[in-house]
């Protein structure tokens, strides 16, 4: 279990001090995949570096399994770091070493004997699916393969925690999905706690159990991924979720404003389906039962660790009372409804 208590980090610049992390309290359970999202400059990189002592908090404590990381230094901290693996956006492999030698590197630091090192490295190569590439140099690998080496290297000393610093941000979508699948399978196989920081909401949505949203050094919202998707409270969370479900949200808003001008009496609503409601023919049922017309504007479907979720932006046209009834009916089917008329005007 990782606990952050009132953790702040200030950097003293030339002219003024910058608070990169501001009074953060977080608890990350053992075995969970925890996502921290935020735009660049939100402080998430600094936060994750305090988990393995690469940065020292200005105040507050970071605890990993009852050991206070934030006050450790020297030999003790170096020893503790072996129990914390880390992977990076740009992989950070040693170009001078082959795949096998890169994976052996942390084992050398942990003073593992040579034959044992090679045996363990070969197992890890198999785990990440790089058989046959043992003797290749990083320069000969693709981005996805490099990150696999990074993961194998991070797992070499059988850590309890894996920190991922924008680990998929330099990869194409297909490779990102492969790497995420690998992380999920490792999480299940080894009961490994994974902390991911990213600016990509879809990464968190796909594999994380819980998440925190950071903005301006603070954690502004935290909770189960699904419940944050259903009821985001903070504007930053809302923006992240919106960008994920509708990458062209600006265009959609433009269309919605046009529609609102043409049909001022119609109700524009955004529906969020999840679990059973995603599979029932709710729209046509509501349309028929209440005699309302449905104009579908935008929709998408996404997977989360628990259940798929779908968003649909529609316009309801009809008698005002009937439209109100229709909205109530959606809620009966456990579909989240958000009326957009006011927000758009």
């Amino acid at each position: 279990m990782i606990t952050l208590k009132d953790v702040s980090k200030e950097f003293t610049g030339k002219n003024k001090a910058v608070k990169a992390v501001d009074a953060v309290n977080l608890t990350i359970q053992s075995g969970e995949i925890f996502g921290i999202v935020g735009y660049s400059g939100a402080g998430k990189s600094t936060l994750v570096r305090m988990l393995n002592g690469l940065e020292k908090p200005t105040s507050g404590t970071v605890t990993l399994n009852d050991k206070i990381i934030s006050t450790m230094s020297g030999q003790a901290l170096r020893k503790e770091r072996r129990a914390i693996g880390m992977i990076f956006q740009h992989f950070n492999l040693l170009w001078s070493r082959t795949v096998l030698e890169n994976i052996c590197f942390p084992l050398e630091i942990a003073k593992v004997e040579k034959t044992e090192r090679i045996k363990r490295a070969k197992e890890l190569i198999e785990l990440v699916g790089l058989q046959g590439r043992e003797d290749a140099y990083p320069a000969q690998l693709s981005g996805g393969q490099k990150q696999r080496v990074g993961i194998a290297r991070a797992l070499a000393n059988e850590p309890q925690v894996l920190l991922c610093d924008e680990a998929t941000s330099a990869l194409d979508p297909q490779t990102t999905d492969d790497v995420l699948d690998l992380l999920v399978s490792i999480n299940k196989k080894m009961n490994l706690t994974i902390v991911m920081i990213t600016h990509e909401m879809h990464v968190v949505r796909k594999i994380c159990h819980r998440m925190a949203v950071m903005d301006g050094g603070k954690v502004v919202e935290e909770g189960e991924v699904l419940s944050l998707f259903k009821h985001p409270a903070h504007p930053t969370t809302k923006r992240f979720i919106r960008q994920d479900s509708d990458p062209d949200s600006e265009d959609t808003d433009e269309v919605l404003r046009e529609l609102l001008k043409t049909y001022p009496e119609g109700k524009l609503i955004r529906l969020l389906f999840h679990g059973g409601s995603a599979q029932a023919p709710v729209i046509s049922h509501v349309s028929r039962s209440f005699n309302v017309d449905v104009n579908i504007i935008q929709g998408s479907m996404q997977s989360t660790q628990e259940t798929p979720i779908g968003t649909l932006t529609i316009q309801l046209l009809g008698e005002e009372a009937a439209v109100e009834e229709a909205i109530k009916e959606f809620r009966v089917y456990r579909v989240e409804v958000e009326v957009l008329n006011d927000a758009l005007q």
Binding site: R82, F88, N92, L93, L94, P106, I109
Partner: peptide
């Protein structure tokens, strides 16, 4: 030398 590589080695606990 890539600063990231140095950071990675530090994160592994290299002396």
């Amino acid at each position: 030398i890539d600063k990231g590589v140095i950071e990675a080695a530090e994160a592994m606990g290299a002396s």
